[in-house]
Design a protein around this nucleic acid. Structure first.
Lengths: 202, 202, 202, 202
DNA sequence: GATGAATGAGTATTCATTCAT
DNA sequence: GATGAATGAATACTCATTCAT
């Protein structure tokens, strides 16, 4: 972070940045296809069209590369999309529905990669930390969402309610993006919106 | 002798059964502590107090051992406990609460191992298959639960409702057993029971 | 050999001898099918219907078992059959033909095992020694055969002639028993008989 | 890079080619000294002065390495030398003698390796296939040799005669290169030339 | 005696990472 | 800077042999 020994290069030139991005994209691909443990440096380098040597001049190791992809994912998708979500205080059911939709959109369009992240969440502390951070965002968002309806709420403990709502949405979204058929998706989201709406307000 | 080509030993003698169980127990420990990829055959054998040779005479490989532990988990816990759960049709809120409790009990008392299973669910098809099977049990259980209140329901599509309820419960349970502090647990379960109760009946 | 430490049992009782023979037969089978390196003690024991433990109480190791089978082969087949071969001094061409036939008969009816012995001949000194001994028998036999026609011979150096004839017969027999089709066999033997006959007498 | 999934490296650079050749040479040595089963990857790598990793980046496994050495042997020696052998139709005995000499030259100057190849011929189908191919060359050569004397022949069936002559030469050569003392060699070759000469023409 | 469970040294093989060119 | 050859520690797995029951 400070200027101390600079092992991996911070790319300044345009070509360099492009190379790094190519590696990131290729790695995301590979991780999604074969998982973290099922992907090796040679494959990533080959898929990115660079040499292993180059690979290691951009990333300290496979793990760092993984974390960089993951962090990028968090920033790009979650923070940005969640940040933009707006609430209509007069239409609560619709607002709940839109909350779910926003969280669904915030999910990786790359579900296979998400799958892998979930896998590592449980076995790697660093991944878990990043995950927790991401969850905090999500949780905070839901909390703020609920708070906007403060005086119309059936629940008293907003923090707990937010965790429950968050968890339910997360899991349904997960099952939709990873295993779900599209036909089911709409019914599930509708049902979920009903459940949350009734829980919070009805 | 009579069986054709028996690659892995099927233990008959008491000593043999004990050895196999020692390996199973030790492996569960190790997987929970260090994850599937972070555990190797030698370590498992050492932890079980047996030789690598013994390990491989009982299990084709690490994967098979893992699956055996997981299947045992499914049978012992899920099927048995879920099977026993009884419903009180006059007290719906209480019934929901007891459903959640039953599903919580059905979870592994070995949360670290559960954590690892979750990790593999997403990267290994065989694990996912077993997981799906387990989910079907859970889903079926929830479906039957809901059906018992058929004429008092607010929801029409029982199958979809069951999936939503299942998912919500699963995720909350997960966050309780893995990350949750005990203080939170009760509030979460109560809130969850409220949510489901309101969704289905209120 | 002397009474010194008796590691492997010398079977006295009938049942014991039978067991040992069962192991020998099973091993010959396995060696023929999968080769020395492709056969393990467990398989041999299983094929013989005994335990590995028993196996090792009859044979010091796999190698000793192999040598025992090989020596038995030499004694039973080679010595016995070659010993019985008779010559008709008035019909030389016919005698040559009968010599070849006798040597063909002396070959293992178990060509796959012979194949394996050949393989080991080149990589194991002990096998080579036994093989050489066997060759000496064969060579001696051919020498005595040639000597019976001493005054009618075209060749002077009988020892060398015997080696040449021996080698030629060996190789043709080998190609017949291992690779040859039966249709070819007769023509080859006839041609071989011609060649040897012309070489020695014609 | 452009090629799909290249498992073992195809050496382009000079350094790389040298390394591969060092491994090939060292392996030939080791196989000759200790046989195929008596040699392991680590030893070969050490003898070649490279790491095991390098070994496996050039060869899928020990077997592939072995086959590569063997095929090289066939091409370099057999095809080339046999191809060059010329016949003098007016001096038949001398031609036979030169045939034998040519076939002797075509044999590996590395008799210990040849020994090992023979060993594997009988237990490994792939080796046998290559061997058969090599034999076909040899057989074809002998057939063409005999055909050049067509009208002076005592034998009618040239194909059968070629097999017999081939076999006899092969075996004598074998016994000369592997077991034979040099003193014997000349006498054996002379006798062999006599035998074949008499068989074909005399 | 017989059994087959247990042993562990030995072998093949992979792959993250380094470094000479 | 880039390359890809080289490294070798790490790991899975086998099997001849021993030994407790």
């Amino acid at each position: 972070m400070t200027e101390m020994e600079q092992k991996t290069r911070i790319p300044q030139q345009k070509r360099s940045i492009e190379t790094k991005n190519r590696i990131l994209a290729a790695a995301k691909d590979q991780f999604a296809k074969n998982g973290f443990h099922g992907t090796n440096a040679k494959e990533i380098a080959a898929a990115a069209g660079v040499s292993v040597g180059s690979f290691y001049s951009y990333f300290k190791d496979k793990k760092e590369l993984f974390m960089e992809i993951f962090r990028e994912h968090i920033e790009e998708k979650v923070v940005r999309i969640l940040g933009e979500h707006q609430v209509d205080p007069d239409n609560r059911r619709e607002s709940v529905y839109r909350l779910i939709k926003a969280m669904l959109d915030a999910h990786d369009p790359y579900p296979q990669f998400h799958r892998e992240v979930l896998a590592m969440r449980y076995s790697d502390p660093e991944v878990e930390a990043a995950f927790t951070e991401m969850d905090q965002h999500s949780l905070g968002h839901v909390e703020r969402f609920i708070e906007q309806f403060r005086d119309k709420l059936r629940v008293k403990d907003i923090k707990t309610a937010a965790r429950i709502v968050s968890a339910a949405v997360e899991e349904i979204i997960c099952s939709i993006t990873i295993f779900g058929q599209d036909e089911d998706a709409d019914r599930l989201i509708d049902g979920l919106a009903d459940m949350i709406h009734r829980y919070l307000f009805d």
